[in-house]
Amino acid sequence: MKTDKKQFMTGAEVVVRACVDAGAKMMFGYPITPGTEILSHWIREAQVNKDLKYLQTEDEIAAGFCVCGAVLAGEKTFTATAGPGTVLMQDALSMADGMRLPVVVIIVQRGGPSSGTVIYSQQEVNLAIHGGNGEGLRLVYSPSNLTELYEYTRLAFNNAWKYNFPAVVLSDGFLMKTRQLVDLGFKIKNFSAEPIISENTQKNIRNIYTFEEELGEKLARDKKDFEKMADEVVKVVSYKVVGCEILIVAHGIVAGAAKEAVDILQSQGKKVGLFRPITLSPFSAKELNDLARQVKKIWVVESSMGQLRDLVKQNLDVSVEIDGLYKPAEGIGSDEIVKLFESF
């Protein structure tokens, strides 16, 4: 782990640094804006660091299944994709769900549906968590700045290999293309990768079942493991929530803007706080419900028409009014959020 001080880096450079520091040795990928620079920076890194390998596959389906295969052999590896590529990636992610493979995918959200726009969105929340056929037993991190992008990419590898669930780092094109001073001077110990099937051994890891009951029992076991993992990995930030009457819920880069807005609003004497899930899956239902009991209203703020809102609703067991600012595929700045509470 490097202990160098602040550096001026883009999000894509931060991801590559995090993957290298996590011990990843290989990237499989198919380029798509705004995630292409992850592949190109990895290739550049591989020119100087001969331990690193890469393969540009024919599409995202191949990239995803290559990662599935490589992790079986104990190789720490990953892929990165965006938008329509995230759709194609579901086939492999679903296999990783079913076979409990430590597959790591960096998703760089862009506007949808279809090719949409090439820069920014928060419309891949549902895909990241529930995109495949199955139950969506995946670990999904939503970082809101470049330092967090580094930290949660590292944790995605560690927890994927520790708990044997696929892990997604859900970012976006703004985060990936932004250049900021990043402080990478913190230490994270790597969880080591061991072959899931060793050479010269036979082991049948199934992704197909003859009897309905067999699959049902397997999924019940997986769900139990997932819930056990949840206690250890779930991450949430409750910001300035003491005494607040309105609770903003936001994730990812929008949560960065919301945090700024909460500072401004509280300086005006307004009782507005922020609940920010860092892990979207598993979701921190307890903290949300504790806060929901205290507030008069929840305001969801997101660059989608309600994917985060639906997640919030799924996890609420308290009756509380929900309103929101929904701007699919458009950025949301702090000034816009402050404006929402002008008459409050």
Binding site: N145, F174, T178, Q180, I253, A257, K259, E260, G331, G333
Partner: peptide, 10 residues
């Protein structure tokens, strides 16, 4: 101070 959000309108 640290910058929370990269874009702005004004």
């Amino acid at each position: 101070n640290e910058i929370a959000y990269p874009k702005f309108s004004k």
